[in-house]
Design a protein around this nucleic acid. Structure first.
Lengths: 211, 211
DNA sequence: CAAATTTTTGACCGGTTGGACAAACGTTAG
DNA sequence: CTAACGTTTGTCCAACCGGTCAAAAATTTG
């Protein structure tokens, strides 16, 4: 008599297999997009049959939805850590570094997110307008404080956040292009070190408060 | 007896209809991606039947390929215009402005390109490794000259170009997110003006040569 | 005009895809 | 052991999708 409306209450096997499926789905979705991926591909990658996979997730969309919900949490974690306790410029440099590390260590998550936004964010628009916007509003207010205190240059905190997102995620989402342009010699793992150095210089100098 | 191997030699109707199809395909592909788009959708948007569309483009891939070839040319035009005749900082500011204008005026083209790169650029990897890389190499060398002459700060010209691409294209590719975060008041057309002001400040201050 | 050529369409086809289903298999508790 | 429950799979289906084809309609050419 297990009603799953209130709490899922899942078996040990169900928990494990769902994790396996989500990992496989992340791989497939991030590489091919939602419509470009098939349940068979995900089932293959998860090492099980298609009907078996559909026993754990009733519909293809359910997998994607679960993935996106978890994604936003981990994806916004770096921004959540930014607060006005420490030195402003140090806080910003840490944020940029953490965001770049996420692009390096979790490129599939970044591409999954980019794919969704590119398609108009049909499945997560409410999360964007709600949770994400609130967080950005909150952090933008902190930055406004830093500007009033003369700790960083006066500028638009929203576009500052956008530019940090854009420049860091670029190394995950446009990885193919980055590696192709840098060539075999400079396109190796060291490219993230180079990017970190460049971005630190750009933002630190770009936000240095006017004397 | 028209062999189209050497030169296409197309009818007036063929030229016109092919343009209509490409315009419709740009709309559909940029919104849904290649695999997410159907020939029927494109035919509908072009105001003709599917077999009729297939009379002008034999395969779905042919439409996409034609679109991508044209795209790269117009997309790289702003970078092509950058040269070392004028003042370095003025050149860079113009480049950023032009690139941002492209994101504003041709968002579909930007999203089509982003979609392709996200999927690993399967259909245009050769153009990226060839034409695009050559152009970037050439312009990076110009920037190196500016740095040696002390006109702009010493930094990595490749990552500088990446950061300009990333920040400007962000306003086309992540448009939904940008508008949602800025909200109804600040998310209107004025967001491009705000972005232009912010980016100008960031890059001009960030690249100011050390005295 | 009439013949030749180009354009358009309805009908159709084979392959793929998301998903349903019942039956088989495995596991656990009494 | 056996009944109950959880897991797995083979089979099937309807919808969709890219593409073909023959024939009709429109246009161009002589």
């Amino acid at each position: 008599m297990s009603m799953e409306a209130t709490s899922p209450r899942r078996t040990r096997i169900q928990q494990e297999k769902r994790e396996v499926i989500l990992e496989a789905a992340l791989e497939v979705f991030s590489a091919n997009g939602f419509r470009g991926s098939t349940i068979d591909q995900i089932a293959d990658a998860a090492g099980m049959s298609k009907p078996n996979l559909l026993y754990y997730f009733r519909r293809k969309e359910d997998i994607h939805e679960t993935l996106m919900q978890r994604l936003l949490d981990t994806w916004l974690a770096p921004l959540r850590e930014l607060d006005d306790i420490g030195d402003p410029m140090t806080e910003l440099r840490s944020y940029i570094r953490r965001k770049l590390e996420m692009a390096r260590d979790f490129p599939r998550e970044s591409r999954l997110f980019a794919n969704e936004i590119l398609q108009g964010a049909p499945r997560i628009i409410s999360m964007i307008e709600g949770e994400l916007k609130s967080l950005v509003d909150e952090k933008a207010e902190i930055m406004n404080g830093w500007m009033r205190a003369g700790k960083i240059a006066r500028t638009d905190p929203y576009h500052l956040i956008f530019s940090i997102w854009a420049t860091t995620q670029h190394y995950a989402d446009f990885d193919v292009q980055v590696r192709a342009v840098l060539g075999p010699d400079r396109g190796g793992e060291g490219r993230f070190e180079d990017a970190a150095r460049f971005l630190e210089q750009l933002f630190v100098e770009g936000l240095r408060p006017k004397g």
